[in-house]
Amino acid sequence: MSIIMAFLIGGCICVIGQLAMDLTKPGITPGHILVGYITIGAFLSALGLYQPLIDLGGAGATIPLSGFGHSLAQGAIAGVQEKGILGAFTGGVSATAGGITAAIVFGYLAAVLFNPKD
């Protein structure tokens, strides 16, 4: 069941991005999409609107980059509750440190090991 819901919710979240690329003004690049998803995900999460989506779709809502925004937002909120103003600065990155570090390290390693293909 969790698999089917992940497929449906994840698919729908991606379709929104596709519509944004195809129907809005030209020149929307993957960079814009990524920035949009992480930012919108974070604010939806702060308003309490993203958690229900995760409850429903599991990885279907956490794997899209909006889920990364959600982790950043929830990290900051938890940080504030724990450490006050310091937490606002440390919470978000602490909660997502694994993913960010992995992306940088694997990115660098891949660049060392592989060359861009024709």
Binding site: A42, F43, A46, G69, A73, A76, V80, I85
Partner: peptide
């Protein structure tokens, strides 16, 4: 954008 949003959200919560 992710970091700025997260810190903003933290500060607003505070």
């Amino acid at each position: 954008f992710g970091f700025v949003a997260s810190v903003l959200i933290g500060l607003i919560k505070l």
